[in-house]
Design a protein around this nucleic acid. Sequence first.
DNA 1: CAATGTTTGGACTCATGCGTCCAGTTTTGA
DNA 2: TCAAAACTGGACGCATGAGTCCAAACATTG
Lengths: 202, 202
Amino acid sequence: MSRAVGQIDHAKSEAILDAAMEILAARGLTASIEEIARQARVSKQTVYNRFRSKAGLVEALVERRVAEITAPLEAPRAAEHPEEALAGFARMMLDAAATPRSAAFVRLYVQAATDMPDLARAYFEAGPRTSRRRLAQFLAEEHRAGRMVVEDPAMAAEFFAGMVIGSYQTGLMLGVDVGLDAAGVERISAEAARRFMKAYGA
Amino acid sequence: MSRAVGQIDHAKSEAILDAAMEILAARGLTASIEEIARQARVSKQTVYNRFRSKAGLVEALVERRVAEITAPLEAPRAAEHPEEALAGFARMMLDAAATPRSAAFVRLYVQAATDMPDLARAYFEAGPRTSRRRLAQFLAEEHRAGRMVVEDPAMAAEFFAGMVIGSYQTGLMLGVDVGLDAAGVERISAEAARRFMKAYGA
DNA sequence: CAATGTTTGGACTCATGCGTCCAGTTTTGA
DNA sequence: TCAAAACTGGACGCATGAGTCCAAACATTG
């Protein structure tokens, strides 16, 4: 299981990606490879050995993040009372999307949107799109079960997601301090779920 | 009233700003001044004569846009039936925020957020913040008038704005075609207003 | 220690783009 | 027609950063 003679060390690639994330988040897409290498305590050449180019590095970074973001994206559990399930889903979305770290990533995608549109699209599919789809699916099931009345689950899912994420995302992306702490997350999740149930209750 | 001998021509500044908008929207903040000058049919030097630097140019551009965006931001009119007023406000928000042109601007602000945070903040205040504030004010009035029940107008305003804008904004910023035409705007505005009234109706 | 392969760091080329400078030209009001 | 000012366009200096190259140092295993 140990690697071959003088073989590459996977942990070092991770270190490079970590450094890239930190630097790119702070300085934007124009940050230099040299700076990233310095932060990773690695020579510039090593970065090029492992990731072919700057674009390759960013690509790998986004790939890793996409995996990271998709994993915990559970659909709401139909077993619970719908309002509870919705509040839980809201909490998850806020935890995933409304943190400074996630905002930094979104900034990155937006910057990349111009000259690397595939990356932006990949994120959009993995993050926002997937979460909406799962939410819509849940709503459709609740509708069938007669616990809610949702004729257009896709639109309803957009509404709920917008209620929860809406403002915070914009502010964070623009680097404005939106002051959202744990209590705020709780308050918004609960209230959004409650209002949504009023709007779509059986 | 006519300008002095060989004096600067205001229209030319406008032409430069127009060109800057088009080029920056298409290529991002890294687009060159030369390209902008070419597009404006003006020499590079002239750009520097009027706007001190690239940062100055972007600043002026954002200033103009902020004025442009703030002007039509009417608060909903309390006289109408609240659902009608809300639908109208939603239409206005979508027209203002969910167009490719506006998306290009937001992309610009996000890119600027790292190294020109004041610009991003100025936009946030003039656009999202102001519209939310006016909406919250309207909701508070409806509450006082007994036509709705809105204990927390600020949060309710965020909810409504999020429902309306939410998903489209994200997609547009990422350069994903969200396929929102006039009929879509109408459908979303009407439905969002209807659901919101169910959630906050008297 | 030998063989294999990686890492390092520093030098290098190349491209791009900001901002400046300037000599000659055009515009405009008087 | 004249003078003041702005405009042009092209050259220029300077900085930054991508990506390459290489010889010396290092790690790993048999």
